[in-house]
Amino acid sequence: MAGRLNAQALLAVAAVVLIAAAPLMAQWVKVLLTIALAKGLAVLGIMILLRAGQVSFGHAMFYAASAYAGAFVGRWTGGGELFVLIGAGLAVSLALGLAIGVFVVRYRYIFFAMLNLAFSMVLFSILEKFFHVTGGSDGMRIARPTVLGMELERAPFEYVMFYLTLGLVVGLAWGVRRYLASPLGQALAAVKSNETRLEYLGMSARHALLVGYVLSAGLAGLGGVLASITQGLATPEIAYWVRSGEFVFIAILGGAGTVAGAFAGAVVYEGVRSYAAAYFADIWQMVLGAVLLAIILFAPGGLVGLAERLTGRRLRGGSADPAVAADQARVGER
């Protein structure tokens, strides 16, 4: 158990170091990785809901609402300050998460999924139809904001966004892990397995789910505002249901219900997507579909499940080796 935990921690640290060092070796990956990690935050939100057995096909609404909040604040303040933009995006997504959450946590399964989808499509329509305010399908440009009052060139700004996103990912991944291990987080699995008993402990299943929902909305929002500031653009397309589906896709690819899976899935997804788009321009969705099919068929635990199986085997192999050798020696003696 402890050995496995250490192996996991080691793997996580190695992954973070590798990602942190990647742009130093190949500059072009930093934007790709920033977007991947930002998406990973939204996927982490999906993971939280998966713990309660619920799937949202509408979390792109928080991703988009937050991006547009950042864009508006940027417009109103003439470029604005990075941390103000992020704060605005986070605040809007949390508030929206609470408002919509109060309603949707009354529902489960297909109804929960579809209600989220419906809300997200309402937002999509608003963003696209109110073009005099939102810029319609062209979206809104987000001018490069100052960072703590400093105006940065493009390259340093991209570095700031990359390391800021990475830092947030590390902190939030740790935080969400703790939350999931706490009674509130464990109550999510209880919502999934037995709501009646939860009520008869004196706890509201809806409240437990609402906490998870607002948190997941905040994570999706944070991802959205970070990605949009990095790209300098917020478009209605990021509120479209396909984007919500993408988050769920990545969650399954990474390993449903695990924190590490959210980011492993996001990084692999963005990687596969950009390579597939470059080499198989017309059929890149098919390549992604094939990858997901392969994962579902051969590694239902996702990338994390796959890694656990590999490291687990290696661990067991490593620690058992001397004992096995000794046993075999003894058998040989007899």
Binding site: G175, R178, S182, P183, G185
Partner: peptide, 9 residues
Amino acid sequence: VWNPFRRLA
């Protein structure tokens, strides 16, 4: 016990 950093275990 609703502290999100308190482990159930």
